[in-house]
């Protein structure tokens, strides 16, 4: 369990230097997210969605401001410490699935567990359980190239689930999928949030996908332009 709120952004800015010019993908963002929330992060391309997600997962550090996730100021950690922290608290689901092609579904799901102090038997239990949750118990020995896009994404979600993270970061998880598979993945994410109380931050362009979340955050040119409580609107 993480201390509440699970995410705090305090005047977070990110500046890149590219081709002699400064690019500001995020500018003075301040926001708070509670544990168990399901937040959709929306905005046009280049609005800073992925940068925000990378800061949340400790893959990147802010140029200024504080990113506090699970009570930890990520900027205060070294690259090594952030990797260890990520392993314990965060899991990613990418648009392109990002499974390792040489590993089977089971081995992909087990991979982050090898970084944890678990026995082989415990790793096996966790991995199989995660695959069962995503409905792929019968595909454990298949390699990614033997699975459909929707199945690959489900394996990616199982990999994210296996280590029981506090925070699930999904970057356009339905972007490469057909409508049917996209619906399946969204149902799965909703179930994970509802049944397993996983905090989910979902980046998407698709308003229909975003509508599954409790809250929508809209970014434009690196600035938080709208914060919509979808859950209460629905009510």
């Amino acid at each position: 369990m993480c201390p509440q709120p699970i995410i705090q952004f305090r005047r977070v800015s990110k500046v890149y230097h590219k081709g002699g010019a400064d690019i500001h993908p995020l500018d003075e963002i301040t926001l708070t997210i509670q544990e168990g929330d399901f937040v959709a992060l929306m905005g046009p391309s280049g609005s800073g969605k992925t940068t925000l997600l990378n800061l949340l997962g400790g893959l990147d550090t802010p140029t200024s401001g504080e990113v506090i996730v699970c009570g930890q100021d990520l900027a205060a950690l070294s690259s090594h410490e952030r990797a260890r922290w990520r392993c314990d608290h965060v899991a990613y689901v990418f648009q392109a699935y990002n499974l390792l092609p040489v590993l089977t579904a089971y081995q992909n799901v087990e991979l982050p567990l090898t970084l944890m102090p678990l026995s082989r038997r415990q790793r096996r239990e966790h991995a199989l359980k995660a695959l069962e949750i995503v409905g792929l118990a019968d595909r454990v020995h298949h390699r990614p190239d033997e699975l459909s896009g929707g199945q690959e994404q489900r394996v990616a979600i199982a990999r994210a689930l296996a280590s029981d993270p506090d925070l699930l970061l999904a970057d356009e998880p339905t972007g490469d999928l057909d409508a049917h598979s996209a619906q399946e993945i969204m149902s799965l994410l909703i179930a994970l949030n509802r049944d397993y109380r996983k905090t989910i931050i979902l980046v998407t362009h698709d308003p229909k996908v975003a509508h599954a979340a409790h809250r929508e955050l809209h970014l434009e040119k690196g600035v938080l332009s709208r914060d919509v409580d979808v859950k209460n609107q629905r009510m």
Binding site: H80, A83, F94, N98, P112, L115
Partner: peptide
């Protein structure tokens, strides 16, 4: 890209 994936799921630079 795979190195990026490994780092994203918690593998350190040393790994």
């Amino acid at each position: 890209r795979e190195m990026g994936i490994l780092k994203a799921i918690g593998f350190t630079d040393g790994h």
